[in-house]
Amino acid sequence: MAREHLVIVGNGPAADEAAPFLRKGVPDARITIIGREVVSYYRPDLLPDFVAGKIAEEDLWVNPLQFYKERDIKLRLGQNVVSVDFSKMELALEHKEVVRFDGMIIATGGKHRIPEPLARFRELVLTLKTVADAKVWIEKLTRVESVLVIGCDLTSVVFTKAILSLGKQVTFFFDPSSPHLFGRSESIREQLAHKMSDLGAEVVDCSKIAKLVQTREDLIEVTTEAGQFRAGAVGAFFGMVPDVKFLTGSGLHIERGILVDEYLQTNFKRIYAAGDCAQVYHPELCDYWVSIGYSNARELGRIAALNLAGEEVQTEAPLSSIFKIDGRPINTSWWMEA
């Protein structure tokens, strides 16, 4: 008799945490992780330090490949799921391979949101989500002396510090009208602006960017309402949106992320979602919330695995992990995909 096949789509913190718990809960199952990146699981929160040269690439890796081998967890790296048919319990990979499964945890995380009007200049703007992104930055920073950081999410702050530590000039575009995390609170915004200035960044209030033009290989001219700026590289940091586009038309209930109940189960039996791609119903908010952050993702990954293995564990996301601003818990999933 064929072994039950449990698939984890994604290879971030939630997926990586889910896999060993799944193995423990379903010892006889065939377990496969399918990840789009060609590298195995790493600490995404350490990428700014990697860009800054504070840690080596090998310090990013969490588990050696042997870890998965020993647990009979199959890693399919560099493979991209393009569609899922939940009625047949089959997924299709980009290279036209069809994989059958008996249960699934979707843990694809988030992807960078590039809002208009920046989306038109996508080619000129760098982000920092993956090791590959980090390597692009590392290579770029060998050739440029100044960086323009647009947006104000968590990564932008850490990244700015990292770039400053390299002795680069940083102009930090602070968008007061931004609807995302720091933009919501005047006091946080001010504190952040001071902090950035203290560190050596030039902080500019700027909400409208009209144009980005590459004038030289190592020079981009940025036209804004606040004037013209020049930088060697431009980074955009506007937070993440759930990476679930490949599930469009699958019948899965999706709002911004995949809608799951407090057990992280989707509207399909034995299909769970965890981490940044999931919108988890939370009784206190009486709403769905999207987790952000490394620890939250791992916790949700663990719960999804336990439940797929047959347990009934409810999510208990501590409110401290949902950002509170001005004393109010904030649902961080209000933006729509660009």
Partner: peptide, 10 residues
Amino acid sequence: TSLLEPGTVL
């Protein structure tokens, strides 16, 4: 691709 070892660069 289903048979390749983890770490294989596709």
